[in-house]
Write a protein that binds this DNA or RNA. Structure first.
Length: 576
RNA sequence: GCCCCAGUAGCUCAGCGGAUAGAGCACCGGCCUCCGGAGCCGGUUGCGCAGGUUCGAGUCCUGCCUGGGGCGCCA
């Protein structure tokens, strides 16, 4: 069954079509009614009639009485629609019995690659990895829920010249020692020591350079050592992902090295297609429309003058592989905004090569930086740079303090043995929500106090709204009623009904631009609307019919919040 | 120098070419014998600047200003 907005839009489209073939109803939310159709206004010029007159013609053609109680044309030509309360109630009844809460699985599932997180082997994960990991995971969850065949791909940095020095450092440390250092998370120490040796010790530097050659030529022993490095780092990444609560696993790791065997083929194919130009000894493709600082055409270098391959060739190989071998219809690259031009060039070249088409699209889901309250980098409580793990631990600590503080001030609090779990959900949820709730294109300000506030558009507020609803059932000692259509008598009930029915619409809008903040805004709206309802409509009343009806609204509110947050990768506690 | 992104209330942010630009925080004023006051109701303050397109521009186009980022063998 189509969502409410689509149902209305279909009827409107038919009526507009009768007045002017193919006319768009331009359906929008309204502050004058529930919805408004603005489509008559742009038709005025085309048809040479006044907008209001056209709107009246549309309304005459409109068959919508079962969905709307009121349809009104304003003097300006807006068509204001008031949804039928009976219709809303019936739809809510359907929702009550639907575990998917009105979100239908897509008719034609697509294979969609979501490329996100991408930390580097033997390098610490830092705040810079937060957004790609959190946003990518949220998008992957939403697309999966819609029924798509989602391939999470963690394009880790597991190849390149630094591995010569890293392997030699591993040799010097001893494999066991080195591996445990890596998996325990002392990646910064490992990397910096390797770097220090490389810079201060000529012998070490020579060995490192030879080791790079050995690695690239496929030397067995070198390869084995390389795998030790990678495996140790991956174990560490897993602990971070587990802490963050993202769904990436070892199976999702498809590092740069995975594409090594395909690079020569990519270059050959580009050459065969006549796209290659040798420039200063490097094999290049010049996609049109890109210029350097002198105004000369800017190349994408697919093979360096020394014969080596850079990241452009790896990215091209990944596109080709994902399209031709995996059958990907969409590829989402959840990577920061600074790489916009790189991806534009890669996508342009991939299109020239025929890998990217209308049937197989690559999308750069870019995002801005994370800034501290001072507009600069994020610093820890003690000051100084902060690792991702440190940040997450601090979030949980702060959440624990915040919850304890609230508890001691609230005589009605419910304590329990799972306070650590709650602090984890709230702390991690706060970090993720603050990231997801800002338009990904913008830089956003990382502010502990704001993200952990229990008021406003925050994770804790939404979790609290959920926990509070659950407590109604606990304290009232009532169970969730059997699915049925509620009675919507109070305006607050009606407003809540509309909000609850809007979940599929919010998800559609969110995925249309891969913007999780839209889902966040929606959930905040649901929570606010619920609170207003709860303030104005007593739930645990004696009248059984009314109590049941309102309990259904409560339960649906909790479920919408829970499902919505789970699609963002945020857990909800039963109590706080 | 060229390219990309951003500039909306004191602060943090929404805003799909449509009517009077919205939230939260902060501030001010109300509401408690109330199922969790972590609340509810109301009030104050704004689209960087200048042109243009349009019946209609925060939204699209051009120029400028400010901030951030990028610009050939790193990823």
């Amino acid at each position: 069954m189509p969502d409410v907005r689509s149902a209305i839009e279909q009827r409107l489209a038919a009526a507009f079509d009768a007045v002017h073939a193919g006319a768009n109803p331009v359906l929008r939310p309204s502050d004058r009614a529930d919805l408004q159709a603005n489509g008559a206004l742009p038709l005025a010029k085309v048809l040479g009639r006044s907008p209001a007159e056209i709107a009246r013609s549309v309304v005459e053609e409109l068959d919508i009485a079962d969905l709307c109680d009121e349809v009104e044309v304003s003097g300006n030509g807006f068509i204001n629609l008031t949804l039928s309360t009976g219709y809303l109630a019936v739809r809510l009844g359907d929702l009550a019995g639907d575990p998917r809460l009105g979100i239908e699985a897509v008719a034609t599932p697509e294979t969609i690659v979501v490329d996100y997180s991408a930390p580097n082997v033997a390098k610490e994960m830092h705040v810079g990895h937060l957004r790609t990991t959190v946003i990518g995971d949220a998008l992957a969850r939403m697309l999966t829920f819609l029924g798509h065949d989602v391939r999470r791909e963690n394009h880790i940095g597991d190849w390149g010249t630094p591995f010569g020095m890293l392997i030699e450092h591993l040799v010097d440390l001893g494999e066991e020692e080195g591996a445990s250092e890596l998996s325990a998370g002392d990646l910064t120490g490992f990397y910096q020591q390797a770097r220090a040796s490389f810079e201060s010790d000529d012998g070490f530097a020579d060995r490192s350079r030879r080791r790079v050659v050995l690695l690239q030529s496929g030397d067995d022993e070198t390869f084995r050592l390389w795998r030790v490095l990678v495996a140790g780092s991956v174990r560490y990444f897993d602990t971070v992902y587990s802490k963050l609560g993202v769904q990436l696993t070892d199976d999702d790791i498809v590092g740069e090295s995975y594409y090594n065997d395909m690079l020569a083929g990519v270059v050959e194919e580009l050459e065969a297609k006549g796209l290659l130009v040798v420039h200063d000894g490097a094999k290049c493709v010049f996609p049109p429309g890109f210029a350097n600082r002198n105004g000369d055409p800017l190349p994408l270098i697919v093979q360096k003058s020394d014969g080596g391959y850079g990241y452009a060739s790896t990215d091209l190989a990944a596109i080709r592989h994902r399209v031709l071998d995996l059958g990907a219809k969409r590829m989402l690259y959840v990577v920061g905004a600074p790489q916009t031009q790189h991806f534009q060039m890669c996508f342009a070249v991939a299109a020239m090569a025929g890998w990217l088409t209308d049937e197989a699209q690559a999308i750069h889901v870019s995002f801005g930086n994370v800034l501290g309250a001072d507009g600069r980098m994020v610093a820890s409580r003690a000051g100084g740079t902060i690792t991702l793990v440190g940040l997450l631990d601090e979030a949980v600590d702060r959440a624990r303090e915040a919850i304890a503080g609230r508890r001691s001030a609230d005589p009605n609090n419910e304590t329990g043995s799972d306070d650590d779990q709650i602090a984890t959900m709230v702390g991690i949820g706060a970090v993720k929500y603050s990231d997801l709730s800002t338009d990904r294109g913008r830089d956003y300000v990382f502010d502990w106090d704001r993200m952990l506030a229990f008021e406003g558009n925050t994770g804790p507020y939404l979790q609290y709204a959920y926990a509070r609803i659950r407590s109604i059932f606990r304290r009232g000692e009532v169970s969730v009623p059997a699915p049925a259509a509620p009675v919507l008598r109070d305006p607050h009930e009606r407003a809540l009904a509309i909000a609850l029915l809007w979940l599929p619409v919010a998800l559609d809008d969110t995925l249309a631009t891969y913007s999780p903040h839209k889902l966040c805004s929606y959930l905040f709206e649901v929570a606010s609307t619920f609170t207003s309802f709860y303030e104005n409509c007593r739930v645990l009343v004696d009248d059984e019919a009314q109590r049941t009806s309102r309990l259904i609204l409560c339960d649906l509110s909790a479920r919408v919040l829970s499902l919505g947050l789970s699609l963002l990768g945020i857990e909800v506690p039963e109590r706080m």
